[in-house]
Design a protein around this nucleic acid. Structure first.
Lengths: 178, 178
DNA sequence: GAGCCGATCTACGGAATCCGCAAGTATCAG
DNA sequence: CTGATACTTGCGGATTCCGTAGATCGGCTC
């Protein structure tokens, strides 16, 4: 992936010195998305199976154009269309959020966590934790093993604190549409 | 929602006294899912737009049966098919995880958080926080307002601690498929 | 400006999918 | 036995998907 990465001139470049900065800017390394792609994403956040034609009607594009843009967004990893559930509801598994403080490079710890299959979610943060990781496990033994044997075994990890999930109350993907 | 919740007889009932316990059990209040629905969900976790016929072939069901099951899972709120992105990558918005300690009933605080549109994710936990909430905001001012004015204003909230997101490293929905 | 190139959109047609419906079967609860 | 539930098979029409060809636009070089 990341074949091209070229071009990608954002629209509306004339106001570089604009007072109120445009809310959408590249913040990662990724492509700055234009308003149309944003609108497409919003459509798919409401319903991941919505037909391309319906999306096109909503955002003012042809069906084929929507299809191409969606495909590109998926290929670039900007978005993914998936089924999401609450693992606890689904049945098995123990979940926990683990806050981690790091001695050296926090990013390399985050990368190590990323490689673990039990880790669903990794984010680097500012605050009393350097990294937050969400873990999904089979049972308590498995959870214990991941936290104590694998995460704490990482060289740069100074300390960890765990928050075992008791009940998921909300899970939305509707930002941009409210 | 939560209208019916009836019936939901699982298949393969003959081995109730099986030695190794079935990994799937009702843990919430929700319907215990059978192995077939689990398999369907796994398929849709890989690709939320996969055709029903392909799913049927994978899980050993007819196209119509898959369609009916998926519809039911969606209606019951067990699963949702959506586009997910990294808001930071998409451009605008400030994100943070907020850990909250509660004096009285933690669940009512969680419910109050659930009603806030800026709150994407709410989970009740065991540990030094009673509730974790993920917040997505327009900018720092907005974030500050939500945390200081709205969350801390809740009567039972004893204290909060915020972790502003710097970089999202991983975001998966592939549990069950590894 | 002429000309080329890459990216993106529209247009179009055939294949595949979606979706409702009906009939027939099997299982389980009462 | 009766009713309820769930699955299968089959069907047909509307819809959607998907590849491709052609048009358009902006930037680039010369």
């Amino acid at each position: 992936m990341h074949s091209g990465g070229v071009a990608s001139r954002s629209a509306d470049q004339r106001d570089v010195r604009e007072s109120r900065r445009d809310p959408r800017e590249s913040r990662n390394g990724n492509p700055p998305l234009d308003a149309v792609s944003l609108a497409i994403i919003e459509q798919l956040q409401e319903d991941g199976r919505r037909p391309y034609a319906a999306i096109g009607k909503a955002v003012g594009l042809s069906e084929a154009a929507v299809r191409q843009r969606v495909q590109k967004l998926l290929d670039q990893g900007v978005m993914q269309i998936v089924a999401v559930t609450d693992p606890l509801t689904v049945g098995f598994r123990r979940q926990a959020m683990v806050g981690i403080t790091v001695e050296g490079d926090a990013e390399e710890v985050a990368d190590a966590l990323t490689d673990m299959p039990e880790v669903e979610y990794v984010v680097m943060t500012a605050g009393s934790f350097d990294v937050l990781a969400e873990i999904v496990c089979e049972d308590d033994d498995h959870l214990l093993e991941v936290i104590n044997k694998r995460i704490r075994a990482l060289p740069s990890v100074r300390s960890t604190e765990s928050f075992v999930y008791l009940k998921l109350k909300k899970q939305t993907y509707m930002w941009g549409t409210r």
